[in-house]
Simulated assay, not measured.
Amino acid sequence: MRLILLGPPGAGKGTQSERLVEAHSIVQLSTGDMLRAAVAAGTPVGLKAKDLMARGELVPDEVVVQIVADRIDEPDARNGFILDGFPRTLKQAEALEAMLEAKGLKLNQVIELSVDEEALLERVERRAREAAAAGKPTRSDDAPDVVRKRIADYQNVTAQLKPFYKQRGVYASVDGMAPIGTVTREIDGLLADARATAS
Score class of each variant (00 low, 15 high):
residue 141 D to K: 04
residue 125 E to S: 01
residue 106 K to I: 03
residue 117 E to P: 06
residue 132 A to W: 09
residue 155 Q to C: 05
residue 127 R to M: 11
residue 147 V to S: 10
residue 111 I to V: 14
residue 155 Q to E: 09
residue 167 Q to K: 13
residue 125 E to K: 02
residue 135 G to P: 12
residue 165 Y to H: 03
residue 146 V to Y: 10
residue 121 L to Q: 08
residue 140 S to V: 15
residue 159 A to C: 07
residue 135 G to C: 14
residue 126 R to H: 09
residue 122 E to I: 09
residue 103 K to T: 00
residue 167 Q to G: 08
residue 119 A to G: 05
residue 157 V to F: 02
residue 109 Q to H: 05
residue 148 R to F: 10
residue 137 P to H: 14
residue 122 E to F: 08
residue 124 V to A: 06
residue 148 R to Q: 14
residue 143 A to V: 13
residue 166 K to C: 09
residue 142 D to K: 06
residue 157 V to P: 01
residue 132 A to F: 09
residue 123 R to K: 03
residue 117 E to T: 10
residue 136 K to S: 00
residue 129 R to C: 08
residue 162 K to R: 15
residue 171 Y to N: 07
residue 132 A to M: 12
residue 126 R to C: 06
residue 135 G to H: 14
residue 153 D to T: 11
residue 135 G to F: 14
residue 160 Q to K: 09
residue 115 V to S: 00
residue 128 A to Q: 05
residue 161 L to F: 00
residue 107 L to Q: 04
residue 164 F to L: 07
residue 116 D to L: 08
residue 158 T to W: 01
residue 143 A to R: 14
residue 114 S to T: 06
residue 170 V to E: 12
residue 152 A to P: 11
residue 157 V to T: 11
residue 108 N to A: 12
residue 164 F to Y: 15
residue 122 E to Y: 08
residue 104 G to C: 05
residue 132 A to N: 11
residue 126 R to S: 11
residue 146 V to T: 15
residue 103 K to R: 01
residue 167 Q to V: 02
residue 162 K to V: 07
residue 168 R to P: 10
residue 147 V to F: 10
residue 142 D to T: 06
